[in-house]
Simulated scan of single mutants.
Amino acid sequence: MKQVFQDEYFTVFVDERMRIVRTVRSEKPFDSFEELDGIFARLAAALDAVGRSRYGILADLRATPGRNDPQFEAALERLRPLWTGGFRRIGVLVRSSVGLLQIQRHARRDGVERMISKDEGELLEYLTRDVQAPR
């Protein structure tokens, strides 16, 4: 796996063999709503450079601080497509049942299919199903 981006909020890895992009959210809380657009614009630029449609994305949220206030939820609803849009498949790795329920709620609201699990192996199987390894 090759690291292609890192800031204080996200690290992005690419696994060419498995055709997976892994985004790992750090434990650092977002300091303000004003910074969210810039953070997600930088993340989106890194993901665009990889070529989204060729990959599944694994969003690892296990270290993410829990937060569900209405202002934050609204901002993330607007910004989530910059993160996960355009990928072949989406898998979300969570730490807890509460996190699983929150991401299920986001998926319903977004209308975008994704697998959400606390089991990384299950997500990797889902994301690599029908993938041809590069030659």
Score class of each variant (00 low, 15 high):
P134T: 02
R54M: 05
S117Y: 04
G38M: 05
F13Q: 09
E35M: 08
F30I: 01
A45V: 03
V4F: 00
L47R: 02
D31K: 14
L47C: 09
L123A: 06
G38H: 00
V94R: 00
R22Q: 12
P134L: 05
V4G: 04
L123C: 10
Y9Q: 03
Q71S: 12
V98A: 15
D110M: 08
F87M: 02
A46Q: 10
V94W: 07
Q6C: 05
R135M: 10
V21W: 12
T128W: 03
D31M: 05
A46N: 09
W83Q: 02
G38S: 06
P134V: 12
A44Q: 14
D110K: 02
V98P: 13
Q6L: 11
E34T: 15
P65C: 06
V94A: 03
Y126M: 01
A41H: 14
I103V: 06
R25I: 00
T128S: 02
A49Y: 03
Q132N: 12
V94F: 04
L82C: 02
W83G: 05
D7K: 01
V12K: 00
D31N: 10
M1T: 02
P81H: 01
L100P: 08
Q132C: 04
G99T: 10
S53Q: 15
M1Q: 00
L124T: 13
R62A: 13
L43S: 05
T128Y: 06
Y55S: 06
G56K: 08
M18V: 03
R52E: 03
R129D: 03
R42D: 14
R42Q: 07
